[in-house]
Computed example of a mutant assay.
Amino acid sequence: MMKKYMAAALVSIMVLGAFTGCGIGGGKDIGKDAALEAALNDAGVKEEDTTRLKVSEDRDDGRKTYEIQFDVNGKEYEYEIDASDGGILSVDTEMIPNSAAQNNTQDKNAAGNAGSGGSQTGQTQDGTGDAVQNSSNVAISMEEAMQIALERVPGATARDVKIELDFDDGQYKYEGDIIHEQREYDFEIDANTGTVLEWSEERR
């Protein structure tokens, strides 16, 4: 008799385990590492070549997904990965207007023009690629503004920064963000005084 009770209990445990394994309302989760690998493989890049890497969890119509963002060679990638099977639900890529490589090239060109008698404009670009401003109109350079922001994030470098000069409410200011070690920092800096106007931090 005892054996029958034990057998019944064992069957109940196995059935319960099967339902739990099937994940009623739960489902299989490949994990952040596998989701990141799927995105990197699709982009054809290695993790060590990326900057501003950010992996976060999300839910879309009850389905768990991973949102993955990273920069490589002046291009920004954004992926949405299905957490259950690693399928790519969406991918978006765009050139970064003010990548570090582009800024260095612009600085060298500007310096060359100044040395040959030309004027150094030091123009930056907004999200549409249009020139926003002549650097002679502001007291703080983009590089100086970048350093002001980086001083607040130990370990971060210029490769982790996205920044642009904007004119809003009659005031020139640098707007941008830093992504470092899965944290995103958004900032606004007065382009004439170097004062940090806004600073926020978001854990992803």
Rank of each mutant, 00 (worst) to 15 (best):
G117E: 14
S116N: 12
N73I: 01
T50E: 08
R52Y: 00
A131F: 11
S136P: 01
S90G: 07
A100I: 12
N109D: 09
K64R: 13
P154G: 00
S116G: 14
A34V: 07
V132L: 03
D130Y: 09
R63C: 00
A35Q: 03
D58N: 04
S84I: 01
G86L: 06
A101D: 15
T105C: 00
G117A: 09
L165T: 07
G74M: 02
V45I: 10
Y79F: 01
D107I: 11
S84R: 08
Q106A: 12
I148K: 09
G74S: 04
A110Y: 11
T105Q: 15
N98H: 07
K46Q: 10
S56M: 11
D130F: 10
P154L: 01
N73T: 04
A43P: 06
S141Y: 03
T51C: 07
A34C: 02
Q69E: 12
E37W: 06
A139C: 00
I81E: 02
K46I: 04
T65N: 06
F167W: 05
G127A: 13
K162G: 01
E144C: 03
S99N: 05
I163Q: 04
A38Y: 04
S116R: 07
K46A: 09
A110I: 13
L53I: 09
S135K: 13
S90Q: 10
S136Q: 13
Y79S: 04
E67Y: 05
G127K: 14
F70M: 13
S119N: 04
T105I: 14
L40Q: 06
N134H: 11
N103L: 13
S119V: 14
N41T: 03
T51A: 13
E94K: 12
I96W: 10
E48M: 08
A145K: 10
V72N: 10
V132H: 01
N113Q: 12
L40K: 03
S56L: 04
V132S: 12
A158Q: 15
I96V: 07
E57G: 02
E48P: 00
D107A: 15
A158P: 08
R59A: 07
S90A: 10
L36S: 01
G155L: 01
D126L: 09
I88R: 04
S99R: 05
I88G: 02
Q102K: 13
A139H: 05
Q133C: 15
V138F: 13
G118F: 12
R159D: 15
K54M: 06
T105V: 15
Q147P: 00
Q133W: 14
V45Q: 06
G44H: 13
